[in-house]
Design a protein around this nucleic acid. Sequence first.
DNA 1: ATGAAAGCGCTAACAT
DNA 2: ATGTTAGCGCTTTCAT
Lengths: 340, 340
Amino acid sequence: MKPTIKDVAKAAGVSVATVSHTVNNTRKVNPETRERVLAAIRQLGYSGHSIARSLRRGQTSTLGLVVSDIENPFFTKLASHVQRIASLHGYQVVFANSDEHPERERQIIDALTTQRVDGVILAPVAQENAERLVRSGIPLTLVNRHFAGIRAPYVIADDSLGARLGFDHLWTLGHRNIAFIRGDIERSTTKDRIRGLREAHRARGIPFDESLLIDAGHSGDQGAAELAELMSGKQRPTAVFALSNWALLSAIRGLHRCLMSCPADVSVVGYGLSNPYWMPAAAICMVEQPVVTMAEECVRVLLEQIKDEKVAESVVLPPTLTLGDSTRRVEPRRLRKASS
Amino acid sequence: MKPTIKDVAKAAGVSVATVSHTVNNTRKVNPETRERVLAAIRQLGYSGHSIARSLRRGQTSTLGLVVSDIENPFFTKLASHVQRIASLHGYQVVFANSDEHPERERQIIDALTTQRVDGVILAPVAQENAERLVRSGIPLTLVNRHFAGIRAPYVIADDSLGARLGFDHLWTLGHRNIAFIRGDIERSTTKDRIRGLREAHRARGIPFDESLLIDAGHSGDQGAAELAELMSGKQRPTAVFALSNWALLSAIRGLHRCLMSCPADVSVVGYGLSNPYWMPAAAICMVEQPVVTMAEECVRVLLEQIKDEKVAESVVLPPTLTLGDSTRRVEPRRLRKASS
DNA sequence: ATGAAAGCGCTAACAT
DNA sequence: ATGTTAGCGCTTTCAT
């Protein structure tokens, strides 16, 4: 059916070895012969067979990328850049979405193992799955979240620093009563960001009021409700710091529910990545993860491991604060039931 | 290094055929033997080798999915669902982003050809590339956009209907002076949506004012500027209908520039897909593409072609109108320089 | 400068 | 019920 290297060889009147070497530039071939081969290739519409090549060479030139939530703009962008960078190095990327399900993640990892990808970039959900992958001997780089004691490097943003950046911004604007909404406490990112908040409080010599730390909850509804309640109380916060993209959604819904507008009634800082498609969200002050650098480092670190066959160094990158229209200086004195 | 089927066979004291058949359930094996084989597999950590299997079977159980802009929530969601559905049918999905570049699209298509994917779902950029793929004999299904005279089925939303839905909504609210922002006129989606607008005008017996149709431009800046200018004129529109996700961004920026707020000063209807991460955009009235159904149909149509080895029927799906907080009834009489 | 041929790991047709 | 073996298309070693 489809022409093989044999067909090309016959058409060009050479051996398959010569065709292979011509295609791959892997040894000298007579320019004249080379032309004949290329002509045959063109004429037959030959296009190689990477499956056969992979089998023979024992490597697939393919990387796996597993993200935990493809609809999260951070991962969308990460995927897009990982793909771009990998292809610069001659690697394909196969891409999958675990959707935060450990079971789905396991299936994906098994499929990647069977597929013999040369390495995997994993935004992990369950530590167990990551360890399974390490055990299977496939080079692995974790991204975004990390685990303790795993024999694989990670590329993450400095989440505790990010939390401090966001907090300091609000503090500098005079906010002293700030609500926080967090994501799943099991995730290292959540833990690190809360740690950053505690550090920031300690640095200011003030106590950390646990009652101001709200769980966004699985769907974000819980956080929206709790925030609405908090904002309706008498000691209502002047600002909200949402510690993840999901938490920000939850916050927006909560504020909407109690008819608070931003930044008039309350300042808002988000954490994650603003997407060009986010529209008004572009105006929300965000602690931004350095996603392009993270993508570059993921690929670099993974390729390093593939080449050197050893565990590479981990990388921690600094997030940045992007100002928006969602925060403002707290009013010097709060007037009860004044204004409109 | 890694155990092969041979190692398993030796460990279990059977032939490779038995191991293969045990793994694939492809002929009867004695339950007792089967147990021995499975034990050996577990003990050795054997995990199959889909490369070798693909080479032997002449099919890869892999589909290619090529989108034109992964950061567009429509494609993100499409990708996510295509992957989910394909895996239900035992197919992997390799995924790539052409980013609207014909050249990049060509490279991707060549890679997919070399990779011997069993079929391709393509959100096309350049007709020429799609035709190249058809010529190579790989089953192809187009999605979102379509071309005339290509031997491949397409799965699209009824864009002319969608445009009529959006227009009718605004018309019903009393809007008679509506600005439209469109994307690239070369795309079939853009053409179809504008055709829908013309039809809607004709149905109402009113002329279509070309000066109200703005090009969002490549980056969206041009559209933002033109809209701002239009809105600053004396005959300023009471509503804006953005004909794509990009166009909506452009519109929002334009309205922001001339300090128009929505829906107070102007009603807005978008076209595409609202992402949960879009936040305030969730409140924008949208003509929504039926992305989940589109994903299902893409996979169905493609698998049909793979199995039956013939060109399948195309599918046109109806979009829906999702109401939001971004539109409202036009004021019965417009007061010049009143209110604020 | 080129060719012959082994063999990557697996499946499946053909034995037994 | 199980085993033997050819061969998928390619790369690469060893010859020439």
